[in-house]
Design a protein around this nucleic acid. Structure first.
Lengths: 168, 168
DNA sequence: TATTTCTTTCAAAATATATTGAAAGTTCAA
DNA sequence: TTGAACTTTCAATATATTTTGAAAGAAATA
């Protein structure tokens, strides 16, 4: 397979993959394109290579920056802005974990804590089932939260090397 | 807060949460409803409590069953079908991991393996960047795959108790 | 077998999400 | 300043996804 063809396939698959995880296709594709590009790209480069509009690129690029996955780069002597993506996948993963935790897990845990304190007879089977389910989810969520915090602080070699031995 | 109000809030939040992870709102809400219901429910129960149509309930219920998160239950002497959800959140999580791995991670790893074998001069910086990025993602994906396999096989107490000590 | 009860299907409609592109905004060099 | 080069915004449009509901299908009962 040629480089150009392989790039296309990767970008397309990364886009489809993203849609299964609540990320819009174009955003995932821009991310994929930047990850496999050796040099920073301009908005026009991205527009051309992915065949999408200027506004689309601009908005999704901003979103990627807010996720901490893409950076603006100013090349000296150049007027245009360039964009580049973190290519170390461990850093990408921990960054995504960090953001999703902040945006989704933490608020969910907050809500669950509130819901656990409902009024009503704990002997009632409906009340009991509710409290048990919410309690179980919350306990699990808290453990996950701690585990993810540790992943964020750890470094890649820990994940690649050490972890497996521990699990055996 | 009353039980009814708390249930509503949980169902609504679980639905919103789902949409951030590529799961449609109604499917997530049905799942939430069944998780906090002490007894199995019929399609009509779900239609009424979530205020959605019969067809919608039917299709999403089928989907939940295919994910292994909901089971059909026949109550003896009853004509109607009932539905119930697994309430142990550890089992829910491992089931979701198992399915997503099969549906998404495994095919992605297969593709990455193909993409790594591109033709072209490895000295070329574009070729090099592509191969490096794809290789890094693949290596990471394989480790994640193994780690998730172990989680699937492990039991909840391992996650709740043992893991944390290991991480220190 | 006919009738009732319940389940499934799927085309059409409704809704939600993503995309476009032109206009407005900004920055910088001359 | 002016205007060329570049970026951002956002209402309108297009696309994708979800939902509805009525009709068809199945299964149990009389």
């Amino acid at each position: 397979m040629e480089l150009a063809e392989a790039k296309k396939q990767f970008i397309s698959s990364w886009g489809a993959f993203g849609t299964h995880w609540g990320i819009n296709r174009t955003m995932a594709q821009i991310h994929a394109l930047l990850m496999v590009s050796a040099d920073p790209l301009t908005q026009d480069d991205v527009m051309e290579q992915l065949d999408v509009s200027r506004g689309n690129v601009n908005m999704n690029m901003r979103d990627l920056i807010s996720w901490g996955l893409v950076d603006r780069v100013i090349l000296s002597g150049e007027r245009k802005e360039y964009f580049t993506a973190e290519k170390d996948i461990w850093k990408v993963a921990t960054q995504i974990i960090k953001e999703r935790k902040k945006r989704e897990l933490d608020p969910m845990l907050k809500l669950l804590a509130q819901l656990e304190n409902i009024e009503g007879d704990k002997k009632d089977k409906d009340v009991k089932q509710f409290v048990d389910t919410i309690g179980g989810i919350r306990k699990f969520g808290k453990q996950a939260d701690q585990m993810l915090d540790m992943m964020i602080k750890a470094d890649e070699s820990w994940f690649l090397g050490g972890l497996l031995k521990i699990f055996k």
